[in-house]
Design a binder for these strands. Structure first.
Lengths: 219, 219
DNA sequence: GCCTAAATCTACCTATGGTAATTTAATGTG
DNA sequence: CACATTAAATTACCATAGGTAGATTTAGGC
């Protein structure tokens, strides 16, 4: 439906030779493993921004496009794979920070801060992953972060206050809400870094922990 | 950088006539005003989904592509313009609902419900507007909803609890957080409508109003 | 009545995602 | 050791879609 490039064309006289060039085979060890391709993609994205072309990625990896396609699939699959990678990295790094405290509010604060830090440190990759897809595909993939990272945190919160029946639906909605607020504030902050990291962290933490209610007006 | 379509090619013998066809001029009233173009774009999007081509939009509007470009600009400008329109529509409709109550929590609840309702009612347009852009451009436009709709609501909340110094930075961060959580929950809900509208509304409202804290564990 | 100006359409370009045809190196077999 | 077979990978290609320039015709002014 998208690019059904079918070539059923009469043969022509091509001056340049086609086919495999002289070089070492691939049997002696996998030359371009999936991980190497993804790492190259991350490098290309960091360099060229979220609108990198697949040609640029393939060139960075030192392979040709069909190899890239055999290794990771089409562009959507690439976005998906990189989203998984980034999510895992974020989860790991943030989890380490979160584990350093016992206070739930402080856990949330560390989660927020870690999210902002990593997004800023890998700005282009973050944009590529969150804005890379299009249309319905995007609907599938943009939620990866929420699917993975936040769910376990919110589950933890839900378990913490185990007085209630621990409705799993609540945890799901909350985890999407949590990630969504983080994501939008991150986008805004990447665009206009007018506030300090710590300030933004405090404001989001306040919103998410205490809610909009706060206390009644003092009058 | 993108499509610098420069034609510096030797003239060919084209059988078909080029140029302006017989018809009425545009002096007697603007034929394809900006609003008409945008309305046609919305129709085409509703029909074809968020991946509509500009050709389809121009055809729906009954004009040719250059006219579309003169009227609204390139694709990013189109996304931007439609985002503005949708935002205004949402703001108006939601504001009407919000005004029917005095209780701040109920105002928030109505805001949430209205957001979900409109997004679901105009699913394709919502996806086009929120996922339409790419790369850095997206960073500019995806925040329109937050820029407009939520800010005034959060300002209201901030004014309501006027005890604090009403830091405008807090209101900004909160409004992005508010819209972000709405947006992500909406995407999830559009993908998997497993819960009733009212249930989702209650869960988000609870998260945003009360926060993750709730009460201490009962033990 | 002719010329200028404005408006617009067709045709085209360019860029990019994605794939098929083709060719060579490696490997197994008589 | 010569030869067929297979696997891999490169080049060239296609299709689609955004964006623009040149051609052309109508309307209005001198």
């Amino acid at each position: 439906m998208k690019g059904s490039g079918g070539a059923r064309r009469a043969p022509r006289s091509t001056p340049r030779p086609r086919g495999r060039p002289p070089g070492r085979s691939s049997r002696d060890g996998v030359i371009a493993g999936r991980d190497a391709l993804l790492a190259a993609a991350e490098r290309a994205i960091a360099r060229d921004g979220p609108r990198v072309t697949l040609d640029a990625i393939a060139a960075e990896a030192g392979v040709t496009k069909p190899i890239l396609y055999r290794g990771v699939g089409d562009r959507d699959a690439l976005v998906f794979a990189l989203a998984e990678r980034l999510t895992r990295r974020m989860t790991d790094q943030v989890a380490e920070q979160v584990a350093r405290t016992e206070d739930p509010e402080d856990m949330l604060r560390r989660l927020v801060r870690g999210y902002l830090e990593l997004a800023a440190a890998q700005r282009n990759l973050y944009l590529f992953v969150t804005a890379g897809g299009v249309g319905d595909k995007r609907l599938q993939q943009s939620l990866l972060l929420a699917d993975g990272a936040a769910q376990q945190f919110v589950d933890g919160i839900a378990a913490f206050r185990s007085a209630r029946g621990a409705d799993p639906a609540v945890a799901t909605v909350w985890s999407y809400g949590l990630v969504g607020s983080l994501h939008y504030v991150t986008l805004w902050w990447l665009r206009e870094p007018s506030l300090e990291l710590e300030t933004v962290t405090e404001h989001i933490t306040s919103l998410l922990w205490t809610g909009l209610r706060l206390e009644e007006p003092v009058d």
